[in-house]
């Protein structure tokens, strides 16, 4: 590989594995397509070609290039193919699992799934698995890391959860949660219809 191209891949790799916060404080992962086009002075087809080359380079490392849309913009980022240590601790993973299970239950009824933190409290706090303070702290951290978005009492998926857990995995987690929470019906979400 030419030296120049290797340099370019290095910079591209750094851009794809970056993250920053937008004006609303939400975590933005990777880099937008427009930013890449502007930075590389290339056409969309040239960019696609370059990204294909990069994909070939990173796949042997156990990484894959992901393209996702957020709002009107297309983003690119890098994801591992295998389970590797991540930023979350065990209780945070457990809470995320419960959130995913509740969300999947909500998704069966509503187009835009959302749950309330009191639904989580019923499963985790009332059963003595976590204290109310611990749950609140974990939710705060999950929101901070871009896994969930909290607006008032409502919780929705952040982009990161959908990127790290595809639909199949989310369903599998919901099924696992059903076994682990046997006897605890996840309360059906009240999506504000009664208001």
């Amino acid at each position: 590989m030419e030296l120049e191209q290797r340099h370019l891949f290095g910079q591209l790799f750094a851009a794809l594995t970056a993250r920053h916060r937008d004006d609303d404080g939400h975590l933005r992962i990777g880099v937008t397509k427009q930013d890449l086009l502007d930075a590389l002075h290339t056409t969309p087809s040239g960019l696609a070609q370059l990204l294909d080359l990069l994909r070939q380079q990173v796949t042997p490392l156990g990484l894959e290039l992901v393209e996702y849309r957020l709002g009107r913009e297309t983003h690119y980022c890098l994801r591992t193919l295998y389970g590797v240590p991540s930023e979350l601790a065990d209780p945070e993973y457990a809470v995320l699992g419960i959130i995913i299970a509740s969300m999947e239950a909500a998704a069966a009824r509503h187009r835009t799934p959302k749950i309330q933190s009191k639904d989580l409290e019923a499963v985790l706090v009332a059963r003595g698995r976590l204290s109310s303070y611990q749950l609140d702290k974990i939710l705060h951290r999950l929101a901070d890391l871009g896994y969930i978005i909290r607006a008032a009492n409502w919780i929705t998926y952040g982009a990161r959860t959908e990127l790290e857990f595809d639909e199949e995995r989310r369903t599998a987690i919901a099924n696992a949660a059903a076994v682990y929470l046997a006897g605890t019906a996840i309360p059906p979400p009240d999506n504000g219809e009664s208001k």
Partner: peptide
């Protein structure tokens, strides 16, 4: 219980990669 259930979730995760640990 938390550790067991966390393992169920964890093994299904495909974490994103961040080289720059410092967020802006």
């Amino acid at each position: 219980w938390t550790a067991l259930f966390a393992a169920e979730v964890k093994r299904r995760a495909t974490p994103l990669v961040f080289l720059t640990s410092q967020e802006a």
